[in-house]
Amino acid sequence: MNYMNTFSMRMRALRTAYNLSLDEMAGILSLKNKASLYSWENQKNAPLLENLVNIADFFGISIDWLIGRSEDIYTESSMRSGEIALYTEVDNDYIGGREVGDGYRISFLHAVELVSCGYYLNLDGVFDMTEYDLRVEKCVDCNVHKEYYPLSVRANLLVLLHLVSTEDLYWAYFYVINGKNKRGVLTITKDKLLRIFGSRISDPYKEPGKKAQERAINLVELLRPSIESKIPVYDVEETLRKLEKEKLQKIHDEIKNLNTAKKDRDYGNLINKKTNKLEL
């Protein structure tokens, strides 16, 4: 098997499925620029082991799947590793790609608990623990999310929890419970932020942009309990199938064009020969 080819295709599928730009993905993986990412996706270079681990943790995927040694994209082990990495970042006051204060961290966790009604995250007893590794493990293991959220949905949640800020999470929550009517949502959100953080954060807050809105709303709808089985919003495996189909079609078209060009050349050569004979 060509592992480099498999990795490049699966790396692109991950980024495409979540609608992440090269710049966004480079920032997520703490790369200096998007050049490295571009070289990975085009089979020009291979990532370091550290990069592979970071990719797997961010998306909750199996490294074996990423490099083509397995067809199982998610495992309970890969998901747990990703969730531990997420809550370790949160416990270190690093949320949504930026450093935050202790109060912001606690508010972020409370927001996730609120939106999920305690099904995805249950904070009972978490803040009484003094050792961060125990807090992290309790955030991952003390809830019932394994029963209500399939692995593919937990992967979506893992990525979105990395990307969505507390402010946008509250905005999307109020928007959804308001029947997806924006009227009054910004005012309610700013009032909530004022009570939690004060005017420093509430006053400058504005309605999130289109991409941020979509991510925050998807996060809320995936977190909220439902009697129906949840399905992923971002389907990496389906995206991969589409990319592979497009690649095969491209190869088919290139072969067809080459054959057409060869026929044209052969026909042209034949005409030239006959013309030359006539002239003789």
Rank of each mutant, 00 (worst) to 15 (best):
K32C: 00
I73G: 01
E214V: 11
E131P: 00
D93T: 13
K273S: 10
R15Y: 09
G68L: 04
V126N: 02
L280Y: 14
G68S: 10
M4D: 07
R265E: 14
Y74M: 04
L114I: 07
C117M: 10
D64H: 07
L160A: 04
A261F: 08
R10W: 11
L169R: 05
K277W: 13
W65E: 11
D141P: 00
V159T: 07
H162S: 10
K44M: 05
S78W: 09
Y170R: 04
E214A: 14
E71V: 05
M25Y: 12
G184R: 05
N51A: 11
Y170T: 01
D124N: 11
E254V: 09
A261P: 00
K277L: 13
Y38H: 12
L160T: 05
V144F: 05
D141I: 01
L49Q: 07
M129P: 02
I217G: 01
E279Y: 08
A155W: 06
R12C: 09
S78M: 05
M79V: 02
V185W: 06
A85E: 07
R265D: 14
L193Q: 05
G68M: 11
T260S: 09
G209L: 12
E221F: 07
S8C: 09
A261N: 10
I95E: 13
I67F: 01
E76Y: 04
E147C: 09
Y173R: 03
S152Y: 01
L240E: 15
L222W: 08
E137S: 13
Y120V: 08
Q43H: 02
T75F: 01
Y267T: 14
F7L: 15
K180R: 15
K274A: 13
N218H: 13
I28Y: 01
R98T: 15
Q43F: 00
V159L: 01
T6S: 14
E131K: 08
D133H: 01
A13N: 10
A13R: 09
I67Q: 03
M1Q: 12
R224H: 06
A261I: 11
W65C: 04
L280G: 12
E228W: 05
T75P: 03
L158V: 03
D141W: 03
F174C: 02
E238S: 06
L22T: 07
M1S: 14
K182M: 12
